[in-house]
Design a protein around this nucleic acid. Sequence first.
DNA 1: AGTTATAAAGTTAAGGATAAAGTAAATTCC
DNA 2: GGAATTTACTTTATCCTTAACTTTATAACT
Lengths: 343, 343
Amino acid sequence: MREKAVTLNDIAEKMNLSTVTISKALRNHPDISPKTTKLIKTIAEEMGYTPNIMARNLSARRSNTIGLVVPKIAHFFFGSIIECVYDLAFQKNYEIILTVSQESVEREKKHLQTLLAMKVDGIIISITQETTDYSYFEVIERRGVPLVFMDRVPEIPNGYNTVRVDDRGGAFKAIEHAINLGYKRIAHFGGYQKINIGRERKAGFIEAMQKYGIEISESWVTEGGFGENYGYESFMKLYRENNLPDLIFAVTYPVALGVYMAANEVGLKIPDDVDVICFGNAKVQNFLSPPLSCVDQSTELISKHAMEMIFENIEKREEYVAKQIVVDTNLVLRGTCTRFNKG
Amino acid sequence: MREKAVTLNDIAEKMNLSTVTISKALRNHPDISPKTTKLIKTIAEEMGYTPNIMARNLSARRSNTIGLVVPKIAHFFFGSIIECVYDLAFQKNYEIILTVSQESVEREKKHLQTLLAMKVDGIIISITQETTDYSYFEVIERRGVPLVFMDRVPEIPNGYNTVRVDDRGGAFKAIEHAINLGYKRIAHFGGYQKINIGRERKAGFIEAMQKYGIEISESWVTEGGFGENYGYESFMKLYRENNLPDLIFAVTYPVALGVYMAANEVGLKIPDDVDVICFGNAKVQNFLSPPLSCVDQSTELISKHAMEMIFENIEKREEYVAKQIVVDTNLVLRGTCTRFNKG
DNA sequence: AGTTATAAAGTTAAGGATAAAGTAAATTCC
DNA sequence: GGAATTTACTTTATCCTTAACTTTATAACT
């Protein structure tokens, strides 16, 4: 650094006061008289003082920082979640340390270690599709670092903070709606069953089908990932087998996108030849043709709950008791799954 | 923290060695014998040691951390950029501190201050649409903190690191292509002229039009933001005035999305009634109907250049001389702007 | 044998801030 | 009017690591 950063000590020397006085004044500590405080602030500003956050955190044993671990960034759902979290943190004068696991368990663990090493005040995490070893979360717990699982939550007995979406209920809602329209030949392109959102959405699908006594065809219930490819391939497979359903319930919107692409490629019309609805909302669904209907999960609500939880846990510390919150979903009907067309 | 974190000192006491020996061993310092080093590492692992990054950074006067400032997250371009940056950082064992300005100049400045306070080793920034006061960048420069402007770069004489896209060339390429197809009645829904990408894309548009001697209609060259709304409104205005062009060159893909939406609403067919092409690529463009053609700017390349630059600058320090890199664009033709349909 | 070089540690100080405890002067109280 | 309290600071210790310097023992060399 060419121009050395101004420290509390520099200000103290210049003003013939002790370092601690400066520190206190800048933090509005009542020990220091209003007059002195004001003067100190003026001089500090003048000298271009910026606190050294490393030193502050080390000394104060807290960082005003929350660690966030997500599996993906360039993905509408997580993108919005991240944006909301950043926004809420900004309002509370907290910093966010965002890390991205890229769906890799290894990275995830490494990031968690880093976050602990950075002495974040709390951690919010959306686990990867593959996370099955939960032992590291116990390490975090034992360290007393508040932890919130968001959206993708592990299968842990309980005692952990979780904020998740009512995946089962949302899926049920969508399928029930479809059945009421007259759909019977319904497929589910499902996500990984290792992860709660995959399991729950499938469970909701099955629940609705069973409630109305509709047979579930094995070949129409597939299991794969959450991306476009999977939607595309699944569709193509059924198409080649000449075994297409009337409606496809896609576990995520990228999977639905894959379906759009495949249908387009083979010259089938949505929603007339084959219809689609999916879990998860994204702005672009409005711009597809036809606009894609979906089960909407509010990223604002999810992030808000997660952040409130973590703040409460940070404040109350030992006395805090873990909570489990389930956020409700909304059925958003656009151009698909709004009428029964085979009949 | 219920279970206090293990420190170097704890290990030292247990092993009857000095703290520094432990520190050195864990960093593979040649001072320590291989045998001792190995033993220390085993014990440290056993005791569950995690370094305190705050203390390390404070002591080492470097943080292995790069600050990233972007205007948006839930946006395909920035989402990909961020993902690439995180990936490259991970490979080099660097941490990223991501901050989001939300297109607010105030926030941007606050984030920059925070990053300085966090003693990041370098900063990569994509400025807001509104940033016109560049004085704070001089502060950063004076502090000797490496700085790279990425994509959105300020109008500063030079001497700064910049990585930008050949916006002008890309726009020119698109318009030239359109003209060759036979288009003459071309509009440009342009971005803010305060920011380089807005200006340059417009300049490329004008350049191409002039080269082929095509008249530019004032009413067809608008200036607005970079979002859906702007595209929608601009289209609607021209529609109401019964003054629609044959082709719209949108400054960003969200603007093009707005056009899709408006066209859809008034029952006009793309590309037959009105055609569209835009600057900036996004996966979803493939799923629109018709798929949207665009000028593609490689987020991988941009991020790669930016990261390499910052690493080089961090390494070479004083000897480093600022560079300006311009990344080339690709014309990606899909379902729009591929044939002339009037006449 | 005595000096020099090297290996493998150890000691001290520093990094910049805050918490906790201490002090001197001014104010309050009965 | 003397003890108790408050005000406004200061002093000291601490957070955990690392940089820079010092020490001790051993090997190498003349």
